[in-house]
């Protein structure tokens, strides 16, 4: 039974992956792993802006445009809509491995409704240890974004390290000035909700 099912499964996989390949040719889902160095000051200062489409950081000069999708400062996320920007972005966090998220849900996206009511709360995606003053992103928390322009993207925070301005790791009691995030992002450019 196992063998036959196994063969069947392989065939199905081949079938679907080949189908997917066709999709990729016409509308590629780009997956990138990026270092994202953000302002490490919890109390104030600039956010660092990120665009899924270019998979790069966006200059703060463009903060009032649709060019960015989310931004971070310390461990705070803001998304480009409502209280935080002119775009149409929204976000939700699902309890699933990044690779297992194959499509973006149609509903359930949240926004920064006010400056203090943000879509993403720290407790949603990391554990903070006040004793060691370290926070660790929780594995299996996948962020699903609707981008500022209405396309879909997913994101996984792989690691968060306290660093100095140059991105070199620092350990207590040296206070970090930046947090270096390693993020994995996937962007669906054709407007569909599948990854």
């Amino acid at each position: 039974m196992n063998k036959r099912n196994g063969i069947f499964a392989i065939m199905m996989i081949l079938f679907f992956t080949s189908c997917k390949k066709d999709n990729i040719d016409s509308s590629p889902v780009t997956v990138n792993t990026k270092d994202f160095l953000v302002n490490g000051d919890p109390s104030g200062g600039n956010y660092n802006f990120f665009s899924f489409e270019t998979a790069t950081e966006i200059t703060p000069a463009d903060s009032a445009t649709n060019k960015w999708d989310f931004a971070m400062r310390f461990e705070t996320f803001i998304v480009n809509s409502n209280a935080s920007g002119p775009g149409n972005a929204g976000v939700q966090i699902v309890n699933q491995a990044f690779d297992a998220v194959t499509s973006a849900p149609a509903t359930g996206y949240r926004y920064d409704t006010t400056v203090s009511q943000k879509a993403i709360k720290g407790a949603d995606w990391y554990n903070y240890n006040p004793t060691t003053r370290s926070f660790s992103p929780i594995a299996g928390k996948t962020f699903i974004f609707r981008t500022a322009t209405g396309k879909y993207a997913k994101l996984e925070v792989l690691s968060a390290d306290p660093t100095d301005d140059a991105g070199n790791l620092v350990v207590p009691p040296t206070r970090p000035t930046k947090i270096k995030y390693k993020i994995r992002v996937a962007f669906q450019g054709n407007g569909s909700a599948t990854f």
Binding site: T33, N95, A97, D99
Partner: peptide, 15 residues
């Protein structure tokens, strides 16, 4: 089946 983890620091999460 609610707990995920990584096999190396920046690797993908799995159950």
């Amino acid at each position: 089946q609610e707990v995920y983890g990584r096999d190396n620091v920046n690797g993908p999460a799995r159950l």
